Computed example of a mutant assay.
Amino acid sequence: MVIQAFPVAKLGSLLIKQISKPIANYVKEKAKSHPLFRRYICLPPAHFYNWCERKSKMWLLRMGQPVNITVLNEAAAIELGANLVGEAVIFVIAAGIVISEYSRSVRKEAAKEAAKQAEMEALQNNIRDLFIQTEEQAAHIRELTRKLGDLGMLHHITDHITDSRL
């Protein structure tokens, strides 16, 4: 069963990418053409990404602290920023789908649990009703036994009286 889930997951991720790609491409084009979007949405992540990349490369190569990190030219920064925004869009769409699937699963499990709880309560009510019914029947049986005992005693007394008269 677990092995069968992997192709479905792979197909699902491919589907998400295919659906998200046109949206990401649209966002990339808007990022390149719209000046405010380019300046405030594309360029800051691109410069930050470039800075982190240079710092991590220097650290990984054990070359010490970089003295000055070259800033990307505007065209490269816009391209990198647009790609980052496009990937972020794909990630957000995929994360939204995963979160909605998870919440649907949680709701389904909660409904199952509620149904199981309702069934348990119904069974407990039935057991309680049966217990009360058996207690009532036991009380009736005791009452009937007492009456039979009284009748037997009365019969025994009447037999004793009739025997003594004879």
Rank of each mutant, 00 (worst) to 15 (best):
G64S: 08
V2S: 05
N126Q: 14
G12V: 14
E53C: 03
P45I: 07
N125P: 06
T162A: 12
I127V: 14
P44L: 02
F131G: 12
T145I: 08
N25M: 09
N25G: 00
N50M: 02
R38Y: 04
N125S: 14
E101H: 04
W59H: 10
W59V: 09
E135H: 09
R128S: 13
I127W: 08
E109Y: 09
I41L: 06
D150C: 03
Q137N: 08
Y40W: 10
E119I: 08
E109P: 00
H160F: 13
I23Y: 01
V71R: 01
L154Y: 06
G86I: 06
P66I: 07
V89N: 04
E113N: 05
C42R: 12
S103C: 04
F37Q: 11
A75P: 04
V92W: 01
A139I: 10
K112I: 12
K57Q: 08
R165Y: 11
I97C: 11
I78M: 04
F6D: 01
Q117D: 05
V85D: 01
F6W: 13
I16M: 12
L154G: 15
I3L: 13
R62M: 05
Q18E: 06
S13R: 06
G64W: 12
A110L: 15
T162E: 05
D150R: 13
R128I: 00
L80I: 00
V106E: 13
H47L: 02
Y26D: 03
Q4F: 15
F91V: 06
I93G: 03
A31Q: 11
L72W: 00
V98I: 11
P35G: 00
Q137C: 06
S56D: 08
S56M: 15
E79Q: 11
I41F: 02
S103L: 02
N73P: 13
I157G: 07
L36Y: 11
E119M: 12
S13D: 06
Y49A: 15
I23P: 01
L166V: 08
A24C: 09
A5Q: 14
N83K: 10
A5N: 12
N126V: 02
I97M: 07
V92E: 02
K147P: 03
I41Q: 12
A115W: 00
I78D: 08
G12T: 15
L80Q: 09
T162Q: 07
L154N: 15
S164L: 10
M153V: 07
M58C: 07
A115T: 13
A139Y: 09
L43E: 15
H155T: 14
Y102W: 11
P7T: 05
A95C: 07
L43I: 07
L148S: 11
T145W: 08
A114M: 03
F131H: 13
R146H: 10
A114D: 10
Q65V: 02
I97Q: 03
V27W: 01
Y26V: 11
A118Q: 15
K17I: 08
N126L: 03
H34P: 02
E74L: 05
V2T: 05
H140P: 00
I78Y: 03
